[in-house]
Design a protein around this nucleic acid. Structure first.
Length: 154
DNA sequence: GCCAACGTTGGC
DNA sequence: GCCAACGTTGGC
């Protein structure tokens, strides 16, 4: 079972939106590395941190479970969609999404600022200089440690 | 296949 | 709004 961190701008889609919806298709990914992770590595019941980016207080705000394997992101076929891609054919999609299910919203966010303070997380992909991927792996050790930090804040 | 220009991300 | 960093594009 793998662990992930997935970023979303709360002004677009937040943890509260996911709690309301129960589950959602994680769409709009337009990066080949992330697409390949969706296709090759994401499995049902994998766990993921929900990360709020591009906002006043960036950080991890809750937990999700992968509930659906990679499938074509519908937006790529729709000329009206921001996610439209002229190269995409229905039998030859370019972009994929996965389905995630709401698990938990943390009582207090685990902020980016706080994550940076721990030597245990110095190799965390999120904290690596210049990393702009919107989805990235988390090691089991990192996951355990971060979960501990989040629980301690309650 | 190189690499400069361009676009995007995302923290600040 | 700025800008560092990096992925992508496209001319050659």
């Amino acid at each position: 079972m793998a662990y992930w961190l997935m970023k979303s701008e709360p002004s677009v889609y937040s943890i509260d939106d996911l709690e309301r919806d129960g589950s959602t298709d994680w769409t709009g990914v337009r990066n080949y590395q992330v697409r390949n992770m969706f296709r090759d590595e994401f499995r049902i019941d994998d766990s993921a941190f929900f990360y709020h980016s591009s906002c006043a207080q960036p950080g991890i705000v809750g937990l999700m479970t992968v509930s659906g394997l990679a499938r074509p992101d519908a937006g790529q076929f729709d000329p009206q969609s921001d996610n439209f891609d002229v190269r995409a054919q229905h039998d030859k999609p370019v972009w994929l999404s996965v389905e995630v299910r709401f698990r938990q919203k943390f009582a207090a966010a685990l902020t980016l600022d706080e994550l940076r303070r721990h030597a245990e997380l110095e190799d965390l992909a999120l904290l690596r200089r210049g990393n702009r991927l919107s989805v990235m792996p988390v090691t089991p050790a990192e996951w355990r440690f971060m979960l501990g930090l989040a629980r301690r804040k309650k």
